[in-house]
Simulated assay, not measured.
Amino acid sequence: MIDKNIKTDIRSPLKWPGGKKRVLKHIRAMLPSKGKKRLVEPFVGGGSVFLNLDFEEYLLCDTNKDLVALFNAVKHSPLSFKKDAQHLFNQKNNTADKYYELRQRFNDNTDSYERAILFLYLNRHGYNGLCRYNKSGGYNVPFGRYKKPYFPSDEIDFLANKLQRAEVISGDFTLAFEQLTSGDVVYCDPPYSPINRTSNFTAYSGAMFSDEDQERLVESSINAQHKGVATVISNHYVAFTKKLYASADQRSLFSVQRSISQNGKAREKVKEVLALYDAK
């Protein structure tokens, strides 16, 4: 059950585009809590939501295998992970040449633990906290040129503690929905439907999240209602999602300041929606 008094300013160890830290108050207000034991997140991303909500258990899912590997490394080997990752955070490694050398090492590596360590380094040293892969699956975010990238020691400790109550899996969001049981509540933060229909903001972990995928998510949420499970979905509020969530039991609209250009410099208020498909 959600503890209304729990501290709600916990940061993820990862910088993550579209993180929900600034809109947690809206999510908390919408997300059912009474009698709910497990929070299920089919699109866990950086983890800001589950880190700031108190449930007995968590099921966390994401298509990004490197993200899942990092979470599992922190869960099972927190001390080793922190020591090995911190070793990369020094001025010698904070140069463009070294960044691209380590990025290539990451792309050439097949060991999930080694990739997890390098993933944190790349996330903190890469441009604007982006997570982007090319069509061949290669990580291709450019060097960020930060004066002194922050090593998230306390954030890793908190994440490691929270993950002891979590199962973390990699796959399509339907994998999480297939594992729902009575007592669960679902929060979905899918790749957002674009404000501009010609934009490419739905790119997610090297894949596209299409209108048909958005529709599949609503279908899964409706099916979950009949299992006694409530689902809340976040998205941009545009013509497509207004129609898409027309059957939701409740909708909440609010404005959020977000980047609306690929260079990350143009920021303005955009409308977002939370759609609730309540348990039947």
Rank of each mutant, 00 (worst) to 15 (best):
N200T: 13
A275R: 04
S153P: 00
K269G: 10
N200K: 14
D9V: 06
K4P: 15
S48F: 00
N52F: 07
P194M: 08
S234Y: 08
L88N: 04
R124N: 09
L175N: 10
K15E: 06
P190Q: 09
F143H: 02
G144Y: 00
D189Q: 08
D84S: 13
Y121N: 03
L130T: 05
A230K: 02
K242R: 15
T181C: 11
R267A: 05
T174L: 15
I169H: 09
Y99C: 03
K75Q: 15
L53G: 01
Y187Q: 09
F119E: 01
E57G: 01
T181Y: 00
E114S: 13
K135C: 00
G35A: 07
E155W: 01
A85H: 04
Y139F: 15
H76M: 12
S205I: 09
S193R: 10
G138D: 10
I6K: 13
D66W: 02
V270Y: 00
D66P: 03
I10L: 15
S220E: 13
N107S: 03
S234W: 07
E114Y: 00
G45A: 06
D189E: 08
L244W: 06
Q214Y: 01
G144S: 01
Y58F: 15
R267G: 08
E56V: 00
V74F: 03
T110V: 11
T63M: 12
S234K: 09
S252Q: 14
L274W: 07
S33K: 10
E57M: 07
E178K: 13
A279F: 02
E268R: 15
D108L: 09
K269I: 00
D249V: 03
M208F: 12
Y192W: 12
T95H: 05
A96E: 15
H26S: 12
A239R: 13
Q250C: 11
A29P: 00
L102P: 06
R251Q: 15
P32V: 11
D84F: 08
G19Y: 01
Y245Q: 08
S182K: 14
R115K: 14
F71P: 07
D9E: 04
D211S: 14
G45S: 06
P194F: 06
F173T: 07
E178G: 12
A248F: 06
S80A: 12
L159Q: 06
K7A: 14
K148G: 02
L130C: 06
G137K: 03
P17W: 01
Q262S: 15
K280E: 13
P190E: 08
P191S: 07
I27F: 03
Q214D: 08
P13Q: 04
A85Y: 02
P142T: 00
N72Y: 01
A116L: 04
A224R: 07
C188T: 03
K147P: 05
T63F: 09
G18Y: 05
G138K: 10
I233K: 04
L163G: 11
